[in-house]
Amino acid sequence: MTVTRTTGETVTRRILQVGPLKPSLAATIADRYDALVLPDDDTRSAFLAEHGPSIGAVVTTGRTGVPGELMAQLPALGAVINFGVGYDTTDVETAAERGVLVSHTPDVLTDCVADTALGLAIDTLRHLSAADRFVRRGDWSDAAGYPLARKVSGKRVGILGLGRIGRAIATRFEAFGCPISYHSRREVPGSPYTYAATPAELAADVDILVLATSGGSGTQHLVDRTVLEALGPDGYLINIARGSVVDQDALVELLLEGGIAGAGLDVYADEPEVPEELMTLDTVVLLPHLASGTVETRAAMEQLTLDNLDRWLADGTVLTPVPEVSPRGAARSR
């Protein structure tokens, strides 16, 4: 499509869909922008050879993204428009080097993700899902009541990544009378919560460790065996961040051995694959990466995605750039 920007510049650029999108979003960019769709079969190379030089913007999600090898085949790429707050599947370092803007959809999903974190904690400690299965199996009788679970109110909560979502999670747990501490790459000025210098130090001093940091190479296995062992046999892990943040092998091993008390997981290292060993554990609650999955939030995410695309087409900027390729700084908390 040919675009005349507010600067007077006229550019001819095509829009490319990379990976599956929300159906209404895919339909909109096809109808409104005549977007192409990147094939996921053996025709991809021929498609990129023909269309790659004309692609100006990619619309994708945090689950698919634009890796460096794909970016290299899009020489005119100016923007990666991401549906979702996470963008660790996009090579932001290469994007920054090439001057390619990367946008995401922060803020609009904060409440729903924070709600999910709290819900996971309640379910994990009180065994609500497991108790539901207990009833459905017909195991409840006069002689067999469900075993006692753990109280949530008043538990010490540690938040790894005190960004927008981390602060929203903290507010919710405060309503349960929970003391809050946190670790981020740097101490947050003016925060009322206790700062821990390292993830292990944070884990050692809490009952519930909630992960709210961003993904990517900078946080790969930030929660390693040392951190999990510091959390200990009475501690619970809640992850609504990214599966890559946790050493999943160590997590599975410690859950099986009783090295930590339980976990509530919305994300995994190799989605949609979930470790088979976790499937039968009543100490673990497993969700299919649905933290932002409400009608209201997904509609707001879709609109912000389109607004970012429209802004780039209009003047070559985006409304919500990711920190690594913008002058806003490099905070990695979600």
Results as ranks from 00 to 15, higher is better:
residue 228 L to F: 04
residue 137 R to S: 04
residue 10 T to S: 11
residue 224 D to M: 02
residue 303 Q to V: 09
residue 157 V to C: 09
residue 299 A to K: 11
residue 87 Y to K: 02
residue 309 L to T: 02
residue 276 E to T: 15
residue 93 E to S: 11
residue 127 H to L: 00
residue 285 V to Q: 10
residue 254 L to R: 06
residue 78 G to C: 11
residue 331 A to G: 15
residue 181 S to G: 14
residue 22 K to C: 10
residue 326 S to D: 10
residue 111 D to F: 09
residue 264 G to L: 11
residue 288 P to L: 10
residue 72 A to V: 03
residue 132 D to K: 05
residue 67 P to F: 00
residue 178 C to T: 06
residue 99 G to K: 12
residue 171 T to A: 14
residue 78 G to V: 13
residue 318 V to Q: 05
residue 249 D to E: 14
residue 197 A to D: 15
residue 213 T to Q: 12
residue 83 F to Q: 02
residue 106 P to M: 12
residue 58 V to E: 07
residue 193 Y to D: 09
residue 79 A to Q: 03
residue 7 T to G: 08
residue 116 T to C: 14
residue 140 W to T: 14
residue 34 D to P: 03
residue 14 R to G: 13
residue 178 C to W: 04
residue 286 L to S: 08
residue 325 V to H: 07
residue 152 V to D: 11
residue 192 P to V: 08
residue 85 V to C: 14
residue 97 E to V: 01
residue 43 T to H: 12
residue 257 E to I: 09
residue 207 D to C: 04
residue 145 G to F: 10
residue 255 L to D: 05
residue 315 D to H: 11
residue 47 F to C: 00
residue 196 A to D: 13
residue 96 A to L: 01
residue 193 Y to W: 14
residue 269 A to N: 11
residue 146 Y to I: 03
residue 130 A to T: 08
residue 188 V to C: 02
residue 217 S to D: 13
residue 310 D to M: 08
residue 261 A to R: 09
residue 315 D to K: 14
residue 221 H to L: 05
residue 217 S to F: 07
residue 128 L to E: 01
residue 178 C to N: 09
residue 101 L to K: 08
residue 126 R to I: 03
residue 67 P to W: 02
residue 28 T to N: 03
residue 131 A to M: 13
residue 97 E to T: 09
residue 54 S to P: 03
residue 38 L to T: 00
residue 281 L to I: 02
residue 124 T to K: 09
residue 209 L to H: 08
residue 286 L to M: 13
residue 325 V to R: 10
residue 328 R to P: 00
residue 281 L to A: 04
residue 135 V to T: 10
residue 39 P to F: 06
residue 174 E to N: 05
residue 307 D to R: 10
residue 197 A to T: 15
residue 303 Q to E: 13
residue 147 P to S: 05
residue 288 P to K: 01
residue 101 L to H: 10
residue 211 L to V: 15
residue 94 T to S: 14
residue 61 T to D: 03
residue 15 I to P: 02
residue 270 D to P: 05
residue 79 A to I: 02
residue 261 A to K: 05
residue 187 E to K: 15
residue 250 A to I: 07
residue 50 E to Q: 15
residue 149 A to F: 11
residue 8 G to K: 13
residue 22 K to P: 06
residue 331 A to M: 05
residue 32 R to G: 01
residue 74 L to A: 08
residue 177 G to S: 09
residue 87 Y to E: 00
residue 237 L to G: 06
residue 304 L to D: 04
residue 229 E to R: 15
residue 121 A to T: 15
residue 136 R to K: 15
residue 282 D to C: 00
residue 67 P to L: 00
residue 156 R to L: 00
residue 161 G to A: 07
residue 324 E to Q: 13
residue 98 R to A: 11
residue 46 A to Q: 14
residue 23 P to V: 05
residue 41 D to T: 04
residue 317 T to Q: 14
residue 165 I to K: 03
residue 184 S to K: 03
residue 198 T to K: 14
residue 41 D to L: 04
residue 296 E to I: 07
residue 269 A to E: 15
residue 309 L to C: 01
residue 211 L to N: 03
residue 293 G to Y: 14
